[in-house]
Design a protein around this nucleic acid. Structure first.
Lengths: 166, 166
DNA sequence: TTTAAGTTTCAATACTTTTTGAAAGTTAAA
DNA sequence: TTTAACTTTCAAAAAGTATTGAAACTTAAA
């Protein structure tokens, strides 16, 4: 396998991975391209490399910047914007956790709080409340755990989890 | 809020949550319905409650069984199959981790192993290999961590993570 | 056997999400 | 100012995913 093929395979796979993580294929591919680029790339270079439209490239670069996975870089004397990827995987994962927690966990916690106040009495209501309470408990634990992870640094993360492996 | 409304809201929200987790909306809604059902439900009851087609119900119930999130239950003297949900959230999360790890992490690890063998010399190749190696390292750590989590029981999980929260 | 209750499959359809491309907007230099 | 390089927006089209419903299949009891 030569370099060009390796790069193409990586971009392709990263795209597939991203689509499982709330990052659409193009967005993940742009991130992959920037990860393995030796220098900051302009929007035009991204468009040419991935063969996508200008609109698509622009939208997804903005989204990546929003997620904190890509940074804008300006070169003196050049009007173009250049882009570089966050290359520290632990930072990447943390950013993804932050976004997904907000989009996924927080809404369900909110709903659980609301419905745990359902009115009425009887076996059926009690049973329902019990199920909801269990899930609520689990969700708030998950939420705290993720908050800790987000605050933690990589060294801490690695050493804690490495201890788990016998 | 009364019981019926609470149940409807829960089913709806669980469906939305699922769709972020590789579980499609209907699949997650069936799981939610079974979670809060006081008794095992037949396919027909699922169809009626959620107002979905027989084919859709069947496909998604099979998928839930496949994922280990729902179990088949047979009543003596009754040809219908009845279904109950796994209600232990920790078990649910573990099953989801197992499936998603297989679908998401393992393919990228495989690709990384392949492309880390790219041929050629020069600055560019070395730089590429370095980036890939970093991601490889991170991925295998993530893989081990998830394996440990899958083997761990809930008590262990909760106590370990609770310690993280100051 | 035959029947009927129940389950599974799958091509067609509906729905959702992503992508395009052209037009509008912005801004630094001439 | 005006120009031109570059960025952003957004409606329409394409691509991808989920759902339906009818037909085929399975199986236990009559």
């Amino acid at each position: 396998m030569d370099l060009a093929e390796g790069k193409a395979r990586f971009i392709q796979s990263w795209g597939t991975l991203g689509s499982h993580w709330g990052i659409n294929r193009t967005m993940a591919q742009i991130h992959a391209l920037l990860l393995i680029a030796e220098k900051p790339l302009s929007a035009q270079e991204v468009i040419d490399e991935l063969d996508i439209s200008r609109g698509n490239a622009n939208m997804n670069i903005r989204a990546l910047i929003d997620w904190g996975l890509v940074f804008k870089e300006l070169k003196p004397g050049d009007r173009k914007e250049y882009f570089v990827a966050e290359k520290d995987m632990w930072e990447v994962v943390k950013q993804v956790i932050i976004h997904r927690k907000k989009k996924e966990l927080e809404p369900i916690v909110k709903v659980l709080n609301e419905i745990s106040g359902v009115e009425g009495k009887g076996e059926e209501v009690e049973e329902f409340k019990k199920v909801i309470k269990d899930i609520q408990l689990f969700s708030s634990k998950a939420d705290s755990t993720l908050n800790s992870l987000i605050k933690a640094d990589q060294h801490w993360f690695v050493s804690t989890f490495m201890n788990m492996i016998k």
